[in-house]
Amino acid sequence: MTNPVNLTAEEFIYPGNRACSGCGLSTLYRIGLKALGRDSIFVVPPSCLTVMQGLYPIAATQIPSLNVTFASTAAAATGVRAALKARGKENIKVVAWAGDGGTSDIGIQSLSAAIERGEDFLYICYDNEAYMNTGVQRSGTTPKGAYTTNTPIKGKIQKNKDLPTIIAAHNPTYVATCSAAYPLDFHNKILKAISLKGMKYIHIHTPCPSGWGMEERLSITVGKMAVNAGLFDLYEVENGKKTLSGPSAKLLKRETLPRIDEYLKAQSRFRMLSEEQVAEIQAEIDAKWEKYRQEMA
């Protein structure tokens, strides 16, 4: 059982980097690298992580990384993997890190193809629910009603894509969801993923104080609200079977979950939601958990 005491103190990213103060990705990246170790190669498209990993000529990350064009993350990772295979260096882990925009929108084509081809690397999508690096524009995973700079008055009209489910439908080796609020869960799921062959996909919920409109200190707390209200669920999908993890699995025992209002009120990006919209969101969560209880309990 991994806990903060037995988790390695070795760091793989230097401080003084350009991540925003309180960045949810920052915490998860730091902890995630403790599971991945130095025998890794990262592939990173334009995104918050590009900036966080460092601007030339200083790299904050201590892992060899390849910056690539926006749409090509999974394809470039494929190429890296192929080269390592050709050179007999398959022990080196290949990990693609892309944002929600880079995965659900511009990068979905190359990711979908990589899974279909049965490639062998880990793809981590960090979901801060908008194009944050360019200043909070809506993406495929932006929730309905959220303020973004290009949905400034009405809020996003469309519902967000359920990316993990879309990816799971491709039947990769492993699909998992994680949250910055539960970094040890992420750590352990990475360890599991890298022990498997084939395409592995981990979708991580990374609260973004800058883009969500909340105090920096609430990054983890708000992340926990999302999980505990049953909005963002931690789970794994293997062989077509979905299993809830830890904090989300516990919720199965409860008849009613904490209301989603606290989570929404904590973020100014949801300030435009009407009461009806909030009720709609709650109803969807309730329906989803009713289904879970029937299928999983």
């Binding site: 401080p15 003084g16 309180g22 970094p183 040890l184």
Partner: peptide, 26 residues
């Protein structure tokens, strides 16, 4: 564990690296 920047040392009396601590308050 939670520090986004890893500026808190993991020791019995944790110390904070004020050179790089961004003051997020997490």
């Amino acid at each position: 564990l939670y520090c986004p920047d890893g500026v808190i040392s993991k020791e019995l009396e944790p110390k904070i690296d004020l050179e790089y601590c961004k003051g997020c308050g997490i």
